[in-house]
Design a protein around this nucleic acid. Structure first.
Ligand SMILES: [Mn+2]
Ligand SMILES: [Mn+2]
Ligand SMILES: [Mn+2]
Ligand SMILES: [Mn+2]
Lengths: 217, 217
DNA sequence: CTAAAAATTTAGACTAGTCTAAATTTTTAT
DNA sequence: ATAAAAATTTAGACTAGTCTAAATTTTTAG
Protein backbone atom coordinates (compact mmCIF):
# COMPACT_ATOMS: atom_id res chain seq x y z
CA UNK A 1 0.00 0.00 0.00
CA UNK A 2 1.43 3.36 -1.03
CA UNK A 3 0.98 6.78 0.50
CA UNK A 4 -0.37 9.71 -1.48
CA UNK A 5 3.15 10.97 -1.80
CA UNK A 6 4.51 7.72 -3.14
CA UNK A 7 1.66 7.52 -5.64
CA UNK A 8 2.43 11.01 -6.85
CA UNK A 9 6.09 10.20 -7.35
CA UNK A 10 5.23 7.07 -9.35
CA UNK A 11 2.87 9.03 -11.54
CA UNK A 12 5.45 11.75 -12.08
CA UNK A 13 8.18 9.25 -12.96
CA UNK A 14 5.84 7.66 -15.49
CA UNK A 15 5.00 11.02 -16.97
CA UNK A 16 8.61 12.14 -17.31
CA UNK A 17 9.69 8.79 -18.73
CA UNK A 18 7.24 9.14 -21.61
CA UNK A 19 8.54 12.61 -22.45
CA UNK A 20 12.22 11.78 -22.82
CA UNK A 21 14.62 9.00 -23.62
CA UNK A 22 16.46 7.10 -20.94
CA UNK A 23 16.27 7.42 -17.19
CA UNK A 24 14.35 10.07 -15.27
CA UNK A 25 16.61 12.43 -13.35
CA UNK A 26 16.44 13.58 -9.76
CA UNK A 27 16.31 17.22 -10.73
CA UNK A 28 13.48 16.71 -13.19
CA UNK A 29 11.47 15.00 -10.46
CA UNK A 30 12.29 17.77 -8.00
CA UNK A 31 10.99 20.36 -10.43
CA UNK A 32 7.78 18.46 -11.28
CA UNK A 33 6.93 17.65 -7.68
CA UNK A 34 7.89 21.13 -6.49
CA UNK A 35 10.32 19.75 -3.92
CA UNK A 36 14.12 19.76 -3.59
CA UNK A 37 16.51 17.26 -5.09
CA UNK A 38 17.48 16.03 -1.62
CA UNK A 39 13.86 15.12 -0.87
CA UNK A 40 13.59 13.28 -4.14
CA UNK A 41 16.68 11.23 -3.38
CA UNK A 42 15.15 10.14 -0.08
CA UNK A 43 11.96 9.07 -1.79
CA UNK A 44 13.81 7.25 -4.56
CA UNK A 45 15.60 5.11 -1.98
CA UNK A 46 12.25 4.24 -0.47
CA UNK A 47 10.61 3.38 -3.79
CA UNK A 48 13.65 1.30 -4.73
CA UNK A 49 13.40 -0.58 -1.42
CA UNK A 50 9.79 -1.36 -2.33
CA UNK A 51 10.92 -2.58 -5.77
CA UNK A 52 8.80 -0.02 -7.56
CA UNK A 53 11.73 1.58 -9.40
CA UNK A 54 15.15 0.64 -10.71
CA UNK A 55 17.57 3.03 -9.11
CA UNK A 56 21.34 3.29 -9.01
CA UNK A 57 22.86 6.28 -7.29
CA UNK A 58 23.63 9.15 -9.66
CA UNK A 59 22.22 7.11 -12.57
CA UNK A 60 18.59 8.21 -12.66
CA UNK A 61 15.52 6.10 -12.27
CA UNK A 62 13.12 3.84 -14.20
CA UNK A 63 9.85 2.21 -13.14
CA UNK A 64 9.77 -1.54 -12.54
CA UNK A 65 6.89 -3.51 -14.02
CA UNK A 66 5.07 -3.29 -10.71
CA UNK A 67 5.83 0.43 -10.46
CA UNK A 68 4.44 1.03 -13.93
CA UNK A 69 1.35 -1.01 -13.15
CA UNK A 70 0.69 1.18 -10.12
CA UNK A 71 1.40 4.39 -12.03
CA UNK A 72 -1.07 3.42 -14.74
CA UNK A 73 -3.66 2.51 -12.15
CA UNK A 74 -3.40 5.99 -10.66
CA UNK A 75 -3.55 7.65 -14.09
CA UNK A 76 -6.60 5.52 -14.90
CA UNK A 77 -8.36 6.73 -11.78
CA UNK A 78 -7.39 10.34 -12.48
CA UNK A 79 -8.77 10.27 -15.99
CA UNK A 80 -11.97 8.43 -15.10
CA UNK A 81 -12.70 11.00 -12.42
CA UNK A 82 -12.06 13.79 -14.93
CA UNK A 83 -14.63 12.22 -17.24
CA UNK A 84 -17.08 12.04 -14.35
CA UNK A 85 -16.54 15.66 -13.40
CA UNK A 86 -17.09 16.91 -16.94
CA UNK A 87 -19.74 14.50 -18.20
CA UNK A 88 -21.84 14.09 -15.08
CA UNK A 89 -21.23 17.16 -12.96
CA UNK A 90 -20.87 19.63 -15.81
CA UNK A 91 -17.45 21.06 -14.92
CA UNK A 92 -15.41 22.68 -17.69
CA UNK A 93 -12.40 20.74 -18.96
CA UNK A 94 -10.21 23.50 -17.56
CA UNK A 95 -11.52 23.02 -14.00
CA UNK A 96 -11.17 19.32 -13.33
CA UNK A 97 -7.48 18.51 -13.05
CA UNK A 98 -6.88 19.66 -9.48
CA UNK A 99 -9.97 17.91 -8.15
CA UNK A 100 -8.98 14.71 -9.96
CA UNK A 101 -5.54 15.00 -8.35
CA UNK A 102 -7.28 14.37 -5.05
CA UNK A 103 -9.88 11.86 -6.20
CA UNK A 104 -7.26 9.67 -7.86
CA UNK A 105 -5.94 8.68 -4.44
CA UNK A 106 -9.20 7.24 -3.14
CA UNK A 107 -8.40 3.58 -2.80
CA UNK A 108 -11.09 1.14 -3.83
CA UNK A 109 -10.89 -1.26 -6.76
CA UNK A 110 -14.65 -1.65 -6.67
CA UNK A 111 -15.15 2.09 -6.86
CA UNK A 112 -13.05 2.41 -10.02
CA UNK A 113 -14.77 -0.55 -11.64
CA UNK A 114 -18.23 0.81 -10.94
CA UNK A 115 -17.27 4.32 -11.97
CA UNK A 116 -15.94 2.98 -15.28
CA UNK A 117 -19.21 1.11 -15.89
CA UNK A 118 -21.27 4.13 -14.89
CA UNK A 119 -19.40 6.32 -17.35
CA UNK A 120 -19.86 3.79 -20.15
CA UNK A 121 -16.23 2.62 -20.39
CA UNK A 122 -14.82 5.84 -21.82
CA UNK A 123 -11.65 5.53 -23.89
CA UNK A 124 -10.45 9.11 -23.45
CA UNK A 125 -10.54 11.77 -20.78
CA UNK A 126 -11.81 15.33 -21.39
CA UNK A 127 -8.37 16.35 -22.67
CA UNK A 128 -8.20 13.51 -25.19
CA UNK A 129 -5.76 11.49 -23.10
CA UNK A 130 -6.33 7.74 -23.37
CA UNK A 131 -7.56 5.96 -20.24
CA UNK A 132 -5.37 3.01 -19.25
CA UNK A 133 -7.14 -0.35 -19.30
CA UNK A 134 -8.13 -2.11 -16.05
CA UNK A 135 -5.30 -4.54 -16.83
CA UNK A 136 -2.82 -1.68 -16.83
CA UNK A 137 -2.12 -0.99 -20.49
CA UNK A 138 -1.81 2.51 -21.87
CA UNK A 139 -3.63 2.59 -25.23
CA UNK A 140 -1.60 3.96 -28.14
CA UNK A 141 -3.17 6.87 -29.98
CA UNK A 142 -0.83 7.68 -32.87
CA UNK A 143 -1.78 11.34 -32.85
CA UNK A 144 0.63 13.96 -34.15
CA UNK A 145 0.95 17.62 -33.31
CA UNK A 146 -0.98 20.21 -35.27
CA UNK A 147 2.36 21.95 -35.79
CA UNK A 148 3.45 18.98 -37.91
CA UNK A 149 0.50 19.12 -40.30
CA UNK A 150 0.79 20.71 -43.74
CA UNK A 151 -1.36 23.20 -45.70
CA UNK A 152 -4.55 21.65 -47.04
CA UNK A 153 -4.52 18.88 -44.45
CA UNK A 154 -7.96 18.08 -43.10
CA UNK A 155 -7.63 16.86 -39.55
CA UNK A 156 -9.54 16.35 -36.36
CA UNK A 157 -8.54 17.87 -33.01
CA UNK A 158 -8.05 14.90 -30.68
CA UNK A 159 -6.14 16.08 -27.64
CA UNK A 160 -3.95 18.60 -25.88
CA UNK A 161 -0.42 18.34 -24.52
CA UNK A 162 -0.71 21.35 -22.26
CA UNK A 163 -3.36 21.13 -19.51
CA UNK A 164 -3.22 24.53 -17.86
CA UNK A 165 -6.44 26.41 -17.26
CA UNK A 166 -5.12 29.33 -19.32
CA UNK A 167 -4.37 27.20 -22.34
CA UNK A 168 -7.69 25.35 -22.23
CA UNK A 169 -9.64 28.58 -21.84
CA UNK A 170 -7.74 30.02 -24.77
CA UNK A 171 -8.91 27.08 -26.90
CA UNK A 172 -12.48 27.63 -25.71
CA UNK A 173 -12.31 31.25 -26.86
CA UNK A 174 -11.05 30.09 -30.26
CA UNK A 175 -13.92 27.60 -30.57
CA UNK A 176 -11.37 24.80 -30.74
CA UNK A 177 -13.18 21.93 -29.09
CA UNK A 178 -12.04 18.33 -28.93
CA UNK A 179 -13.27 16.34 -31.91
CA UNK A 180 -13.78 19.30 -34.21
CA UNK A 181 -12.72 18.97 -37.82
CA UNK A 182 -10.33 21.61 -39.15
CA UNK A 183 -8.51 22.32 -42.38
CA UNK A 184 -5.11 23.98 -42.52
CA UNK A 185 -5.71 27.04 -44.65
CA UNK A 186 -2.25 28.52 -44.45
CA UNK A 187 1.01 28.29 -42.52
CA UNK A 188 2.84 31.55 -41.99
CA UNK A 189 6.41 31.16 -43.24
CA UNK A 190 7.81 33.65 -40.74
CA UNK A 191 6.36 32.63 -37.35
CA UNK A 192 4.88 29.24 -38.31
CA UNK A 193 1.48 30.34 -37.06
CA UNK A 194 -1.37 28.36 -38.56
CA UNK A 195 -4.63 29.60 -40.04
CA UNK A 196 -7.20 26.89 -39.58
CA UNK A 197 -10.68 26.67 -40.99
CA UNK A 198 -13.01 25.10 -38.45
CA UNK A 199 -15.80 23.03 -39.99
CA UNK A 200 -18.87 25.23 -40.09
CA UNK A 201 -17.18 28.16 -38.42
CA UNK A 202 -14.90 31.13 -38.93
CA UNK A 203 -11.17 30.70 -39.64
CA UNK A 204 -8.95 30.91 -36.58
CA UNK A 205 -5.32 31.90 -36.10
CA UNK A 206 -3.26 29.46 -34.06
CA UNK A 207 0.25 30.42 -32.96
CA UNK A 208 3.04 27.90 -33.40
CA UNK A 209 3.30 27.70 -29.61
CA UNK A 210 -0.34 26.65 -29.43
CA UNK A 211 -0.11 24.35 -32.46
CA UNK A 212 2.70 22.42 -30.78
CA UNK A 213 0.32 21.58 -27.95
CA UNK A 214 -2.58 20.38 -30.05
CA UNK A 215 -2.87 16.69 -30.99
CA UNK A 216 -4.61 15.77 -34.23
CA UNK A 217 -5.14 12.72 -36.38
CA UNK B 1 -7.12 24.68 6.01
CA UNK B 2 -7.25 21.45 7.99
CA UNK B 3 -5.45 18.17 7.48
CA UNK B 4 -7.31 14.89 7.05
CA UNK B 5 -6.48 14.10 10.63
CA UNK B 6 -7.82 17.35 11.98
CA UNK B 7 -11.00 16.92 9.96
CA UNK B 8 -11.47 13.45 11.40
CA UNK B 9 -11.04 14.70 14.95
CA UNK B 10 -13.61 17.46 14.40
CA UNK B 11 -16.09 14.99 12.99
CA UNK B 12 -15.52 12.60 15.88
CA UNK B 13 -15.93 15.34 18.47
CA UNK B 14 -19.20 16.34 16.83
CA UNK B 15 -20.38 12.75 16.78
CA UNK B 16 -19.55 12.10 20.43
CA UNK B 17 -21.06 15.41 21.52
CA UNK B 18 -24.43 14.44 20.05
CA UNK B 19 -24.43 11.10 21.88
CA UNK B 20 -23.88 12.38 25.40
CA UNK B 21 -24.37 15.35 27.64
CA UNK B 22 -21.55 17.74 28.45
CA UNK B 23 -17.99 17.80 27.21
CA UNK B 24 -16.33 15.13 25.11
CA UNK B 25 -13.56 13.28 26.93
CA UNK B 26 -10.04 12.50 25.84
CA UNK B 27 -10.50 8.77 26.35
CA UNK B 28 -13.69 8.66 24.31
CA UNK B 29 -11.87 10.35 21.45
CA UNK B 30 -8.94 7.99 21.78
CA UNK B 31 -11.24 5.02 21.50
CA UNK B 32 -13.20 6.37 18.52
CA UNK B 33 -10.11 7.41 16.58
CA UNK B 34 -8.24 4.23 17.50
CA UNK B 35 -5.33 6.18 18.94
CA UNK B 36 -3.96 6.71 22.45
CA UNK B 37 -5.06 9.36 24.91
CA UNK B 38 -1.66 11.04 24.71
CA UNK B 39 -2.06 11.54 20.97
CA UNK B 40 -5.51 12.98 21.47
CA UNK B 41 -4.21 15.49 23.98
CA UNK B 42 -1.64 16.71 21.47
CA UNK B 43 -4.29 17.17 18.81
CA UNK B 44 -6.67 18.93 21.21
CA UNK B 45 -4.01 21.52 21.94
CA UNK B 46 -3.61 22.09 18.23
CA UNK B 47 -7.34 22.39 17.56
CA UNK B 48 -7.69 24.74 20.51
CA UNK B 49 -4.87 26.91 19.11
CA UNK B 50 -6.83 27.08 15.86
CA UNK B 51 -9.96 28.11 17.81
CA UNK B 52 -11.90 25.10 16.57
CA UNK B 53 -12.61 23.74 20.05
CA UNK B 54 -13.05 24.99 23.60
CA UNK B 55 -10.53 23.10 25.68
CA UNK B 56 -9.39 23.36 29.27
CA UNK B 57 -6.93 20.79 30.52
CA UNK B 58 -8.58 17.83 32.23
CA UNK B 59 -12.02 19.35 31.51
CA UNK B 60 -12.93 17.77 28.19
CA UNK B 61 -13.71 19.51 24.96
CA UNK B 62 -16.49 21.21 22.99
CA UNK B 63 -16.60 22.49 19.41
CA UNK B 64 -16.56 26.24 18.80
CA UNK B 65 -19.03 27.63 16.29
CA UNK B 66 -16.35 27.51 13.61
CA UNK B 67 -15.42 23.97 14.62
CA UNK B 68 -19.01 22.83 14.37
CA UNK B 69 -19.39 24.51 11.01
CA UNK B 70 -16.40 22.57 9.71
CA UNK B 71 -17.59 19.30 11.25
CA UNK B 72 -20.98 19.66 9.60
CA UNK B 73 -19.34 20.47 6.29
CA UNK B 74 -17.39 17.21 6.45
CA UNK B 75 -20.47 15.22 7.47
CA UNK B 76 -22.35 16.82 4.60
CA UNK B 77 -19.70 15.70 2.14
CA UNK B 78 -19.63 12.20 3.63
CA UNK B 79 -23.35 11.73 3.33
CA UNK B 80 -23.63 13.20 -0.15
CA UNK B 81 -20.93 10.83 -1.37
CA UNK B 82 -22.76 7.92 0.25
CA UNK B 83 -25.87 8.88 -1.68
CA UNK B 84 -23.83 9.01 -4.86
CA UNK B 85 -22.28 5.61 -4.27
CA UNK B 86 -25.64 3.95 -3.63
CA UNK B 87 -27.89 5.84 -6.04
CA UNK B 88 -25.55 6.27 -8.97
CA UNK B 89 -22.94 3.54 -8.69
CA UNK B 90 -25.21 0.86 -7.27
CA UNK B 91 -23.25 0.02 -4.14
CA UNK B 92 -25.07 -1.59 -1.23
CA UNK B 93 -25.75 0.61 1.80
CA UNK B 94 -23.42 -1.67 3.76
CA UNK B 95 -20.46 -0.99 1.44
CA UNK B 96 -20.24 2.76 1.21
CA UNK B 97 -19.07 4.09 4.55
CA UNK B 98 -15.34 3.39 4.20
CA UNK B 99 -15.18 4.83 0.70
CA UNK B 100 -17.06 7.93 1.84
CA UNK B 101 -14.55 8.28 4.68
CA UNK B 102 -11.97 9.00 1.99
CA UNK B 103 -14.13 11.00 -0.40
CA UNK B 104 -15.29 13.36 2.35
CA UNK B 105 -11.80 14.87 2.51
CA UNK B 106 -11.66 15.97 -1.12
CA UNK B 107 -11.62 19.70 -0.81
CA UNK B 108 -13.67 21.64 -3.33
CA UNK B 109 -16.72 23.73 -2.53
CA UNK B 110 -17.72 23.62 -6.17
CA UNK B 111 -17.54 19.84 -6.22
CA UNK B 112 -19.92 19.50 -3.28
CA UNK B 113 -22.33 22.01 -4.74
CA UNK B 114 -22.44 20.27 -8.09
CA UNK B 115 -22.68 16.84 -6.52
CA UNK B 116 -25.64 18.00 -4.45
CA UNK B 117 -27.37 19.34 -7.56
CA UNK B 118 -26.56 16.19 -9.52
CA UNK B 119 -28.09 14.03 -6.80
CA UNK B 120 -31.24 16.17 -6.69
CA UNK B 121 -30.63 17.80 -3.29
CA UNK B 122 -31.16 14.67 -1.19
CA UNK B 123 -32.33 15.19 2.40
CA UNK B 124 -31.08 11.88 3.77
CA UNK B 125 -28.19 9.52 3.18
CA UNK B 126 -28.62 5.77 2.53
CA UNK B 127 -28.75 5.12 6.27
CA UNK B 128 -31.48 7.66 6.87
CA UNK B 129 -29.10 10.22 8.37
CA UNK B 130 -30.05 13.82 7.53
CA UNK B 131 -27.65 15.70 5.27
CA UNK B 132 -26.53 19.02 6.77
CA UNK B 133 -27.52 22.08 4.76
CA UNK B 134 -24.95 24.01 2.71
CA UNK B 135 -25.21 26.71 5.35
CA UNK B 136 -24.16 24.24 8.01
CA UNK B 137 -27.35 23.29 9.82
CA UNK B 138 -28.10 19.72 10.86
CA UNK B 139 -31.80 19.05 10.12
CA UNK B 140 -33.83 17.71 13.03
CA UNK B 141 -35.62 14.44 12.38
CA UNK B 142 -37.58 13.67 15.53
CA UNK B 143 -37.32 9.93 14.99
CA UNK B 144 -37.54 7.56 17.95
CA UNK B 145 -36.16 4.08 18.37
CA UNK B 146 -38.19 1.07 17.37
CA UNK B 147 -37.55 -0.24 20.90
CA UNK B 148 -39.64 2.64 22.23
CA UNK B 149 -42.73 1.83 20.14
CA UNK B 150 -45.71 -0.02 21.60
CA UNK B 151 -47.82 -2.97 20.39
CA UNK B 152 -50.18 -2.03 17.57
CA UNK B 153 -48.10 0.99 16.55
CA UNK B 154 -47.86 1.42 12.83
CA UNK B 155 -44.55 3.00 11.97
CA UNK B 156 -42.11 3.59 9.16
CA UNK B 157 -38.44 2.54 9.29
CA UNK B 158 -36.50 5.76 8.78
CA UNK B 159 -32.90 5.19 9.82
CA UNK B 160 -30.29 3.18 11.66
CA UNK B 161 -28.06 4.07 14.59
CA UNK B 162 -25.57 1.30 13.96
CA UNK B 163 -23.71 1.45 10.63
CA UNK B 164 -21.64 -1.72 10.63
CA UNK B 165 -21.70 -3.97 7.57
CA UNK B 166 -22.90 -6.87 9.72
CA UNK B 167 -25.85 -4.96 11.11
CA UNK B 168 -26.92 -3.60 7.73
CA UNK B 169 -26.66 -7.00 6.09
CA UNK B 170 -28.74 -8.46 8.89
CA UNK B 171 -31.47 -5.95 8.10
CA UNK B 172 -31.24 -6.85 4.42
CA UNK B 173 -31.80 -10.49 5.30
CA UNK B 174 -34.86 -9.54 7.37
CA UNK B 175 -36.28 -7.48 4.47
CA UNK B 176 -36.12 -4.44 6.66
CA UNK B 177 -35.43 -1.69 4.17
CA UNK B 178 -35.46 2.02 4.81
CA UNK B 179 -38.90 3.51 4.31
CA UNK B 180 -40.82 0.29 4.79
CA UNK B 181 -44.03 0.40 6.82
CA UNK B 182 -44.26 -2.00 9.77
CA UNK B 183 -46.76 -2.75 12.51
CA UNK B 184 -45.72 -3.93 15.95
CA UNK B 185 -47.51 -7.26 16.35
CA UNK B 186 -46.14 -8.19 19.72
CA UNK B 187 -43.43 -7.34 22.23
CA UNK B 188 -41.98 -10.24 24.19
CA UNK B 189 -42.22 -9.47 27.87
CA UNK B 190 -39.12 -11.47 28.75
CA UNK B 191 -36.44 -10.36 26.26
CA UNK B 192 -38.22 -7.33 24.78
CA UNK B 193 -37.82 -8.75 21.29
CA UNK B 194 -40.32 -7.35 18.82
CA UNK B 195 -42.45 -9.16 16.31
CA UNK B 196 -43.09 -6.79 13.42
CA UNK B 197 -45.44 -7.18 10.50
CA UNK B 198 -43.86 -5.73 7.39
CA UNK B 199 -46.38 -4.23 4.97
CA UNK B 200 -46.96 -6.81 2.26
CA UNK B 201 -44.52 -9.32 3.71
CA UNK B 202 -43.98 -11.96 6.35
CA UNK B 203 -43.72 -11.11 10.06
CA UNK B 204 -40.14 -10.70 11.31
CA UNK B 205 -38.57 -11.13 14.74
CA UNK B 206 -36.39 -8.24 15.85
CA UNK B 207 -34.26 -8.59 18.96
CA UNK B 208 -34.25 -5.77 21.47
CA UNK B 209 -30.60 -5.16 20.58
CA UNK B 210 -31.57 -4.60 16.95
CA UNK B 211 -34.71 -2.63 17.83
CA UNK B 212 -32.59 -0.18 19.81
CA UNK B 213 -30.68 0.62 16.63
CA UNK B 214 -33.65 1.20 14.36
CA UNK B 215 -35.11 4.68 13.97
CA UNK B 216 -38.80 5.03 13.16
CA UNK B 217 -41.42 7.73 12.97
C1' DC C 1 42.99 14.89 -19.99
C1' DT C 2 41.84 17.71 -16.48
C1' DA C 3 39.46 21.55 -14.16
C1' DA C 4 35.19 23.76 -13.55
C1' DA C 5 30.27 23.24 -13.58
C1' DA C 6 26.27 20.67 -12.86
C1' DA C 7 23.88 17.02 -10.77
C1' DT C 8 23.20 14.19 -7.03
C1' DT C 9 23.66 12.41 -2.48
C1' DT C 10 24.60 12.81 2.49
C1' DA C 11 24.23 15.04 6.98
C1' DG C 12 21.57 17.14 10.08
C1' DA C 13 17.34 19.44 11.23
C1' DC C 14 12.24 20.39 11.35
C1' DT C 15 6.87 19.37 11.50
C1' DA C 16 2.77 16.40 11.90
C1' DG C 17 1.11 12.67 13.95
C1' DT C 18 1.82 8.88 16.57
C1' DC C 19 3.56 5.91 20.63
C1' DT C 20 5.06 4.33 25.67
C1' DA C 21 6.08 5.37 30.22
C1' DA C 22 5.90 8.52 33.89
C1' DA C 23 3.77 12.38 36.26
C1' DT C 24 -0.25 14.92 37.49
C1' DT C 25 -5.08 15.90 38.25
C1' DT C 26 -9.77 14.52 39.00
C1' DT C 27 -13.11 11.28 40.50
C1' DT C 28 -14.75 7.66 43.38
C1' DA C 29 -15.33 4.95 47.42
C1' DT C 30 -14.73 4.05 51.73
C1' DA D 1 -11.79 13.42 54.32
C1' DT D 2 -8.64 10.80 52.33
C1' DA D 3 -6.66 7.09 49.73
C1' DA D 4 -7.07 4.42 45.72
C1' DA D 5 -8.53 4.34 41.01
C1' DA D 6 -9.31 6.46 36.74
C1' DA D 7 -8.47 10.00 33.53
C1' DT D 8 -5.48 13.07 31.53
C1' DT D 9 -1.27 15.36 30.49
C1' DT D 10 3.78 15.61 29.96
C1' DA D 11 8.27 13.83 28.53
C1' DG D 12 10.79 11.76 25.31
C1' DA D 13 11.03 9.05 21.19
C1' DC D 14 9.84 7.42 16.43
C1' DT D 15 8.37 7.72 11.18
C1' DA D 16 7.22 10.11 6.82
C1' DG D 17 8.21 13.76 4.26
C1' DT D 18 10.38 17.85 3.80
C1' DC D 19 14.35 21.43 3.98
C1' DT D 20 19.35 23.72 3.78
C1' DA D 21 24.10 23.26 3.51
C1' DA D 22 27.98 20.48 2.64
C1' DA D 23 30.16 16.59 0.35
C1' DT D 24 30.54 13.66 -3.56
C1' DT D 25 30.08 12.09 -8.27
C1' DT D 26 29.31 12.84 -13.08
C1' DT D 27 29.40 15.70 -17.05
C1' DT D 28 31.21 19.25 -19.87
C1' DA D 29 34.59 22.28 -21.94
C1' DG D 30 38.88 23.76 -22.92
MN1 LIG E 1 -5.51 15.89 -15.25
MN1 LIG F 1 -6.78 14.90 -18.31
MN1 LIG G 1 -20.97 6.68 6.76
MN1 LIG H 1 -24.39 7.18 6.35
Amino acid sequence: MQSFTEENYLKTIYYLATRQEGEVTTNALAEMTATRAASVTDMLRKLADKQLIHYKKYQGVRLTEEGERLALQIIRRHRLWEVFLVEKLGFGWDEVHDIAEELEHVRSEELVTRLDTYLGYPQFDPHGDPIPTPAGQMPETGYRKLSEAGPGDSIRLMGVLEHSTEFLQHLDRCNLTLGCLVTIAEINAFDKSVLVQIESGRPVFVSHEVAKNLLVN
